[in-house]
Write a protein that binds this DNA or RNA. Structure first.
Length: 423
RNA sequence: GGAGAGAUGGCAGAGUGGUCGAAUGCACUGGUCUUGAAAACCAGCGUACCGCGAGGUACCGGGGGUUCGAAUCCCUCUCUCUCCGCCA
């Protein structure tokens, strides 16, 4: 959520920025400015009345105390009109505030200056390409065939016990999953991230904190009996640990990591996008979340991007880094870098990680603040990224490292898997 | 699932209708003292909004009500804790 103060201060800059997302926000922005001005002036009037009422109440109290009940009762008559006026003004303030809040929620984050205007993924900028795409032997297969050949994943079994999109990993497939989780967590920890194990269900307040609620509840599995939601990403519980907190600026940057399964309803997906591991209802992910001073967030973003790149290097996978254009970046993001690994067998790029700076957009909803040098509260900047999402990394590993006699495990993973080849 | 208790500032914990934004202690910040530190002492120390400022308004889990006036009384919701039951 954008801050209303910022909209007041630089409406034109916001309108210009949002154009990069293909959004004309000028109507909303100007409506907000007007609502906000109205709300403040009505509220001011209400507060003046409240002030008078408070004064009268005090007088009445003192009169009663000194035994002058008659004078007190006379004063009481005067409070009636004040109370009515206050109630009326308050109703108006509430009404305006609700409208204002709804409008604010409808505005996405303003893209960073480096973000290019654009509509969709076709307009994303490739900022870096690393590694070489392997030349596969004849008869190389996509991961869903490899998974069957080597008995790594049983999709049908998942359908039987739950439904489509809930695969069962087995044998070397299951062990590889476990190895990757540990590998990623260890790497993150070594890079200064504090490891957390967090709940996989969250309450509604947390859903609001990170922006899954309202409006996007359809993307989460819900347990209405208990008012809980299955998390779509560890970002939700990890970030919400800091909701309503005033953190100590001396601790910046606050870096956290956690592994969780992620649950997504993914209603309406179909076709080759959902084949095999490409899109699932349940998958594993290790997430990194950072909180820092506004002036340091972009340095930290670069650091996080470099860290994720290092993971892919160790997994010996060819990848590219994209700077998402305005139209393709997430609602809450100011700047997002996507990591895509090339899948040699599918001959397409697979998104394996997404690293974003939300600036104050998320912190505003979370009320996540710190005290600056003047002792004033300021919103923190929050960032997060996947480090990493397992299914597509697994798909890319299987496809890129397949050889005629089996699947090679990259050296960095061998100490975690306990085997260097799946044959 | 059954029974009970409770929710107050970073923490602990007073406060049962007016002078309470809220005692006290701890923690924290600054200062005095000290070679330095500790101790002691002095001072400061919640959040948000409005206002150039003086200042004002709101907030004692959330919402509603009674009252001239609510942390305090009433209703309601949520959450937490304790005991019993069940149980990895």
């Amino acid at each position: 959520m954008l801050q209303i103060q910022r909209i007041r201060q630089e409406p034109e800059a916001i309108i210009e920025g949002l154009k990069k997302r293909g959004i004309d926000a000028s109507e909303t922005v100007h409506a907000l400015i007007e609502l906000d001005a109205n709300r403040r002036s009505i509220r001011h009037e209400m507060e003046e009345n409240q002030h008078s009422l408070n004064g009268l109440s005090k007088e009445i109290g003192e009169l009663f105390k000194s035994g002058r009940a008659q004078e007190a009762n006379a004063l009481k008559q005067e409070t009636g009109t004040l109370k009515e006026a206050i109630k009326d003004l308050n109703d108006r303030v509430q009404l305006i505030a609700t409208k204002e809040h709804d409008l604010l929620l409808s505005l996405p984050n303003v893209p960073h200056e480096s973000v290019k205007a654009g509509r969709d993924e076709k307009d994303n900028e490739e900022v870096k390409r690393v590694g070489t795409v392997p030349t596969l032997h004849d008869g190389a297969k996509p991961h869903w065939d490899l998974a069957e050949q080597y008995d790594l994943i049983d999709f049908e079994l998942g359908v039987k016990i739950t439904g489509a999109g809930f695969p069962v990993y087995k044998n070397h497939g299951a062990r590889l999953q476990r190895a990757m989780i540990n590998f990623f967590l260890d790497e993150n920890r070594a890079a200064g991230y504090t490891e957390y194990q967090v709940p996989h269900f969250v309450n509604a307040a947390s859903g609001y904190g990170t922006g899954q609620l309202p409006d996007k509840e359809g993307q989460m599995y819900e347990m209405p009996l208990d008012g809980l939601y299955a998390i779509p990403t560890a970002e939700v519980p990890v970030t919400n640990m800091f909701r309503d907190e005033i953190v100590n600026a001396k601790e910046f940057p606050i870096k956290s990591t956690g592994y969780t399964p992620c649950f997504r309803r993914e209603a309406g997906s179909y076709g080759k996008d959902v084949r095999g591991l490409n899109r699932l209802h349940q998958f594993d992910k290790v997430e990194i979340v950072s909180i820092t001073h506004p002036e340091q967030s972009y340095t930290l973003l670069d650091e996080m991007v470099a860290h994720v790149a290092g993971l892919l290097d160790k997994l010996e996978l060819p990848y590219r880094i994209l700077r998402l254009c305005g139209g393709d970046a997430g609602f809450t993001s100011a700047l997002t870098y996507d990591f895509e690994v090339y899948s040699a067998a599918q001959e397409r790029w697979l998104e394996v990680s997404s690293v974003s700076n939300f600036e104050t957009f998320q912190a505003n909803r979370l009320k996540l603040r710190f005290k600056d040098e003047d002792g004033k509260s300021q919103l923190c900047h929050t960032l997060n990224g996947s480090a990493m999402a397992l299914p597509r990394v697994l798909a890319a590993l299987l496809e890129n490292h397949q050889q005629e006699d089996g699947i090679r495990i990259p050296a960095a993973l061998v100490s975690y898997t306990g085997f260097d080849k799946i044959a």
